[in-house]
């Protein structure tokens, strides 16, 4: 089974048992996280100072991150068994106290500034480590994203690699209707970034694009990953309500059956 499919099965399963939502957002980043955790990110010790840093800035997709960490043996599966249980460290949004998670997130617009700081630290400390950040397209509504975008290109942070999950949806509607952020590629290029457009459900293409980046010289990098919200579960795909809705037992069975097929 592909890592992306493994992550999706966990998302559907765990969210049903925890009776929580944000399922569609998690499904849309499954293949991006599969590329990062299955291939791109190194396997250094979780506390090693020279490890790559990764910020899941769209913190509401944390379940996909937990699933990726478990599937790649960075996090014990017993921790995921307690997802959203009373007293669990694994909530809907990720916290840095969990093994394998570098930064706590959940408030949109904070991840890129932090990742830029992590990239800048590597430069000051003459470390080869890279800083990754995964944002949502609607997150670009936040002004702080553009503060950091300006800073990173001005300072030529070549070791900063941002991925945006362009699923075209946000909490209450389609991004084009709520606050249109397109043309994203032109906007980010105008801010001085090295922009690549990729299929956000093609983990191999995402990996290959990242491996080909010059992370020592030049501008910071952005992968605009075009995705389908709710990818892999037909009744969720591109449906606004699955930003928040939890699954019932019948929907859960249908979703798992589709993912197994």
């Amino acid at each position: 089974m592909s890592l992306g499919r493994e992550i999706r099965m966990q998302i559907v399963d765990r969210s049903m048992h925890a009776r929580v939502g944000h399922i569609g957002s998690a499904l849309s980043v499954a293949d991006m996280l599969a590329a990062l955790y299955g291939d791109v990110l190194g396997r250094e010790e979780p506390q090693g100072v020279d490890r790559d840093r990764m910020v899941l800035s769209k913190g509401h997709a944390a379940l996909a991150l937990y699933a990726a960490l478990v599937a790649t043996e960075r996090l014990d599966t017993s921790a995921l068994d307690r997802y959203c249980a009373d007293g669990s460290m694994l909530g809907v949004h990720p916290e840095h106290v969990v093994d394998g998670i570098d930064f706590s997130t959940g408030s949109l617009g904070q991840g890129l500034p932090v990742a830029a700081g992590a990239a800048l630290a590597a430069r000051l400390q003459r470390s080869a480590r890279r800083a990754f950040v995964l944002m949502s397209d609607a997150e670009c509504n936040e002004g702080s994203v553009w503060e950091a975008a300006m800073f990173a290109s001005h300072h030529r942070l070549a070791n900063l690699i941002a991925l945006i999950d362009v699923n075209g949806q946000q909490a209450l509607g389609y991004t084009r209707d709520v606050l249109d952020c397109e043309p994203l590629a032109e906007r980010w290029r105008a801010f001085g970034w090295d922009v690549h457009e990729v299929d956000g459900h093609d983990a191999e293409a995402i990996s290959a694009t990242i491996h080909a980046l010059d992370v020592e010289h030049g501008p910071p990098h952005l992968l605009l990953c075009r995705t389908t919200f709710g990818k892999g579960v037909s009744f969720m795909e591109s449906r606004i309500e699955w930003h928040y809705l939890p699954l019932d037992a019948e929907q859960h069975a249908r979703a798992l059956a589709e993912l197994r097929a």
């Binding site: 100072v49 700081g117 000051l124 800073f151």
Partner: peptide, 22 residues
């Protein structure tokens, strides 16, 4: 580093810098 007139980014940057030991 004069980060420009961008205080939110300044604190975000500092968070990333401090996590790395600065």
């Amino acid at each position: 580093l004069n980060v420009g007139v961008a205080e939110q980014n300044m604190i975000g940057l500092a968070t990333g810098l401090a996590e790395a030991g600065l």
